[in-house]
Simulated assay, not measured.
Amino acid sequence: MGAQIPIALAAFVRDGLLLLVHRNPARRWYPDCWDLVGGHVDPGESAHDAVRRECFEELGVHVQDAVPIPMTISDPNLAVHAFLVTRWDGEPVNAAPEEHDDLRWFRPEELADLKLAHATSLPSLLSAVEGA
């Protein structure tokens, strides 16, 4: 197995709701499922900088605070760096329609019924909402 791919993800929480994006069905990796905003950490970039960049590229918002949180996923090829985001400038929009075809705010009790990119992340997601 090669080196793990570093990924930075943001769990946006507002008023007890979690923001998820729906990955476009044409995506090569994890198509047609709900996921956190985020993406690859570029060479020489910190995970914290990557999550701020990805949030601007994908949602058009400027993250004010990104607090590291534990995130469990089952893909051994990924090194996930997850962040709780509760403060940002701007209103999230789908600024990357080639990557996502929808974004929505979900109540914690709705998450178990979704097709998630990483089903093993559900406890981590619920903890993030509860901790916000």
Rank of each mutant, 00 (worst) to 15 (best):
A8V: 01
L126A: 02
L36A: 03
V80T: 13
H48V: 07
E91L: 13
H100A: 15
R104Y: 01
G90C: 11
C33W: 00
V41G: 07
G90E: 10
L116P: 05
L59S: 08
V93F: 08
G39K: 11
E130T: 13
I5H: 13
R87A: 15
T86K: 12
P31W: 00
G16P: 06
E130C: 00
D101L: 13
C55M: 06
A50K: 02
A79K: 13
P31Y: 02
L59C: 14
F106L: 10
A128V: 05
G39E: 08
M1S: 14
E57Y: 11
R53P: 05
S124L: 08
N24W: 07
A11M: 09
G44V: 13
E99I: 10
Q4H: 02
A128I: 06
D101T: 13
C55P: 04
W29C: 01
V129I: 15
R23D: 00
G60M: 06
V51F: 04
L125W: 11
L36Y: 06
L122P: 02
C33G: 04
V85A: 09
N24R: 14
F83K: 09
S121N: 11
L103Y: 09
N24K: 11
M71W: 13
V93P: 00
P70D: 14
M1C: 03
L59V: 06
E57A: 15
A26T: 12
G39V: 10
F106P: 03
